[in-house]
Design a protein around this nucleic acid. Structure first.
Lengths: 206, 206, 206, 206
DNA sequence: TGGTAATCGAGACGGTACGTCCCGTCTTAAG
DNA sequence: CTTAAGACGGGACGTACCGTCTCGATTACCA
C-alpha cells in the first residue's frame, strides 16, 4: 500500500465486485424489475452512494452485470462448420439463459430502453452489436470454408436469428431446446445456402 | 325481507373508456414505464379506486389497452396470395407501431411478464396466441390455394416471423420499412415453398 | 299529494332503528372514531344513502344515538335530599358509561365539535343544556326543601360537577366509583351549603 | 472489515422543528381533526416518510407539539399565596388556550385516546401527570406557608380543578375569563381551607 | 288486483388522505 | 478523507372511507 499507491479508488475493487455479485443474485432470485438499488447495496454490504458513484443508474449497473454474465467471445470459436458454429452458439446461449439471470436482465433492460433512448444506445453497443459481430464472423468463416457465398442480406439473416432466440426467451418457454436449436440452424442454412439442400432429410426432430 | 338478490357489478362505460383512452395516451407520450396509475386516473377524470376495481394492476389494464389498439382480426383478410397476405400483415403492423403506443406497451408488458408468470400467461392468451392463429390461417389459405404444402414446422416458421418483427420493434429502428418487409416475406416464402425455387446458381454444392 | 297524506318516510322505521342500533354497537366495539358510515350501513343491512337521507353526517347520527342511550330525564326524579339526588345521578351515569358506548360517543362528538361550530351548538343543545337543566332542578328542589339557599353561582357549580365527571370519563379510570361519587357529592354540598355547616370537625383550624 | 458499529439514528434538527411548527400552525388554522400528515409534510417542506420515521402516528406527533406549546413548568413558580398561585396558573392557561392551538390539540388527542389505550397512557404521562404535579406542589407550598393543612383528598381536589378547566375549554366558551378564574380559585380555597372562610367577602367579580 | 312511483339494498363513482416503498442525494461517525 | 449506514425530499403506490350517484328489485298506494 505504501509504494506506488494510485490511491484513487481506495478500496473499490472488492465493493465493485460485491455490488455486481449482489445485483446478479437478486435479479436471479426476484427478477430485474424487483431488484432495487437499496437491496443490492444492503446485500453487497455497501453504501448506496458507492453504487451511485460508479453507475449513474440501475440500468448502467445491470449492463455491466450482463457483461459479466455473458463471456465476451461467446460462440466465437470455430466449430468446424457453419452448422456446428450455429448449434454451438445456441447451446451456449441456452445454458446461459438457463443458468444465469442474463435473460431476465436483458428483457428488463430492453423494456427500460423503450423509454430511455440513451439506454437504448448503450444496450445496442453492449449487446446487439457484439452479437451481430459474432454471427457475422461465423458467416465469414463459412464463406472462407467455401460452405456459402457471403449473403448480401447478412444483416437481415443475423437479426432473424437473434429475433428467433429472443422470441423464445421473452415469451415462449424459456428453454432453447434441441428441437428449436435444430430448426433454427436448418432455417439459417437454408437461407444462406444454395437451394438444392432439398433431398428429403433435413429434419428428424424429437 | 332481507332477500338475497345478488346483482352483478355494473361498471360505468364512460369511466371505463376514459381510463383506457388516458392510459393509451399517456403511454404514447411518456412510455409504458412512465405511465402511472395516478396520472391515468387524473387524466381520465376518474378515482384511482375505479381503476383498481376493474383491473388488478397496471399490466392487466394495459393488456386491455393493447387489445383496443390492435384490431382483433388484424391482417386476417385474404389478399390473394401468400406473399401479399404477409406483406399486408406487416404493413398493418408497421402502421400500428408507428401510429400508436402499441409497440411500447407490448415491450413493457413483456418485461413485466418476466417477473410475473400469471401476466406471462395473460400476455400469451391476449397477444401471442391470436397472432399465431392469424399466421397459421394465412398458411392454411396458401395451402388451399395450392401455393405451398402446409409445413410441418409451421409453429417454428410462425415464431420466426414474429421474432423478426419483435426484434425490430424492441431494439432496432422502430420502423418496419419496405426493405425489411420484403426481406421477411421472401425469407418466409423460401422456408415454406418447395426448394426448387432456383435452378443451379448462387453457389456450388458442399 | 291530494289529501293530507304526508307520505314521507315510507318504510323508514325499521331501517332507522337498525341504523341507530348498528351505530351504537360498532361504536361500542371499536370506538366512535373507528365507526365508519360504511360499516354501520352494512351491519344495519341498509344502503348508505338511507343514512345520508336522515342524517347530514356522522356527528348528527351519533347525537341521536347518544340521545337513545341516555334517557331524557336521567337523574331527574326526586330522591329525597340533595345528597341523594346527586348520588343517584352519579350512579346512573356510572352505569351508563360502564354499560354503553355513551362515554366514547360523547368524547368523539366533543372532539369533532372543536372543529365544527355547528356541531358544537347541536351538542350543546342535545347534551350540555339538558344536563345543566337537571342539575339546576336538583338544586331548586333542594332550595324548596330548605336544604340550601339557591346559590348565585349555580351555573359555575353545575359546570364544576359536570367537569369532574368528564375528567374521570375522558382521562382517568373510566369508572365513577363510590369513593369518587362521595367525594364529588361532598364537594358540591360544601360549595352550596352555608359555610357554618360543621362547627369544628372535619379539619382542624389553620 | 464488516465491523458492527451500530450508530444511533440521527434526526435532522431542522426537519424535526419544521414538522412541529407546521403541525402547530395547521392545527391552529384548521383544527386537529383537519390537520393531515400530508399537509404538514408539505408545509414543513419535508417528505412524509420523515414524519413517519420519527412518530408512529399523528397522535404521537401532536403530543410532542403539545409539549412544545405548553412550557414544562407552567404555573409552577411561587406567587406568594395559594390564591395567587392558582390565579396565576389559570391566567397562564387562559393565555395559552387563547393564543395557541394547545386546547384544540388537547381535545383531539383526548378523543383519539378513547379508542387507543396506548395513546391514553402517553397522554396521561405527557399531560395529566405533570399538571397534577404542579397543582400538588402548589398545595404543598401553601401547606408550608401555613395557609392550609395539606388535604387528604388532594388528588380529588386537583382533578376537580382540572376538570373545571377542561369543561370550559372543550365545551363552553373557550375563554377562561376572569369571572370563571375567580370562581374556580374561590371554590378551591373553600375546599381546602378550614370552614370559617365565610364572612361576606369572597366574591367581587368583574 | 294490477300498475306505478317512491324507496329501498347495493355498491360504483370522483375524491382525499392514508401509510409504505423506493428513488437518487446528502449527512454523519467510524476507521 | 473515504466508507457504511441511513436520513433526507420527493413522488407513486395500493387501500380505506368519504358523501354522491346510479341501478334494479321491492314495496305500498291508487285506480
Amino acid at each position: 500500500m505504501t509504494s506506488v499507491a494510485i490511491t484513487a479508488p481506495r478500496r473499490s475493487v472488492q465493493s465493485h465486485e460485491a455490488v455486481l455479485a449482489a445485483a446478479a443474485d437478486i435479479a436471479g432470485r426476484r427478477g430485474y424489475g424487483h431488484a432495487g438499488i437499496e437491496d443490492i447495496a444492503a446485500q453487497a454490504g455497501v453504501g448506496k452512494q458507492t453504487i451511485y458513484r460508479w453507475w449513474p443508474n440501475k440500468a448502467a449497473l445491470f449492463i455491466e452485470v450482463y457483461g459479466r454474465l455473458v463471456p465476451a467471445g461467446l460462440g466465437a470459436q470455430d466449430a468446424g462448420s457453419l452448422a456446428s458454429d450455429l448449434t454451438r452458439l445456441l447451446q451456449r446461449l441456452s445454458e446461459l439463459y438457463a443458468d444465469t439471470p442474463a435473460g431476465n436482465i436483458l428483457s428488463g433492460l430492453i423494456a427500460e430502453a423503450q423509454t430511455d433512448p440513451s439506454l437504448a444506445n448503450q444496450l445496442h453497443d453492449a449487446y446487439v452489436a457484439p452479437r451481430r459481430e459474432i454471427l457475422r464472423s461465423i458467416l465469414k468463416r463459412a464463406t472462407e470454408r467455401g460452405e456459402i457465398t457471403f449473403p448480401d442480406n447478412a444483416d437481415f439473416v443475423i437479426d432473424l436469428f437473434s429475433g428467433a432466440v429472443w422470441f423464445r426467451i421473452l415469451l415462449g418457454t424459456r428453454r432453447l431446446d434441441p428441437t428449436f436449436t435444430q430448426q433454427l440452424v436448418d432455417a439459417l442454412l437454408r437461407m444462406v445456402r444454395p437451394a438444392m439442400t432439398m433431398p428429403a432429410d433435413n429434419q428428424a426432430s424429437g
